[in-house]
Amino acid sequence: MTSHPRDTYTNSVYALATINKTGASTLVVDGGRRRCQHLGIAAAGAADQYAFQWANTLVGNPRQAPSLEITLGPLSLRFNSPARLAIAGAEATIKLNGIDRHCWSSFSVNAGDRLDIGYATAGLRYYLAIGGGFITERLFDSCTPLEADGSNHYLQAGETLQYRSDEGAATYKTFANASQSANLHKMTPWQLRPNYAAPLTLTLIPGYQFKQFSREAIRSLLKGEYVIGKDSNRMGYRLEGESLDVSSKPMTSEGIAYGSVQVPSNGQPIVLLNDRQTIGGYPKLGCVSARDCYALAQCRPGQSVRFSLDNPLPEKTFQSPPS
């Protein structure tokens, strides 16, 4: 077992999780950065807030506690101290020391345990929350580290993550009584787990530039299916389908809201997500509602989506897990 870094004043111990293996895009995430976009830095944050907040809820964390977002996978971690974990989001095989664990539920790990999560098989991103949250430096009021050039820092094999050891997690595991056991092994009710294979319709909230698009363009948008292009990522989802007629009027660049649907000159819409560029000058139809953006972020290239028009604002509900 590796030694613990110690804070000499409080004698508190940070436990460590070591990344043995990771895919190309594993991030520490939370609700996103604040007061950074005026510098051109993306707000980032968990792309699917629904699954992310569920993962935290399952381990009793505040909803926005620092967790891991793993896109596609795989991920392999070793823990040097006890902890409670929960995984929510995309389906993947989860093995703790070679024994199956399940998505949308919490479980305990002991010192020396090894967690292996495979490639996502339905959905694209899964979230790993840990009791108390991962302990990180904070920048712009967020846990997501930045590279020197202002882009997100993606985790690599060999890096370690700090957390607070939860001795209780190990004890309860061994001497569980009924109430402790129920508290330790929470599950998201099946009715509340998304079906990532189901067809997705994106609710569009028309923006002030909506009227610049012709009736034909709007008809085209609502008529057909759009296939998610392969260059889709946390910056934006590129959709391929009916080409939309765009007015050629040049526009002054302006700030871009989360979920904005911009239409460049090729007429193919792009839905802009967490790592979008902060400003842009392409015409925008409006914004996709937040909850549909979360669902979209779980879609893979090749899946198709449709659009429907929302009534004018305000949006009716904001989907988040129960507290």
Partner: peptide, 17 residues
């Protein structure tokens, strides 16, 4: 206010939920 994006003659403002 979570974030603002000032640019040319516009200002985007994102409020905290």
């Amino acid at each position: 206010i979570i974030n603002t994006v000032p640019a040319y003659r516009s200002l985007l403002i994102e409020f905290s939920l």
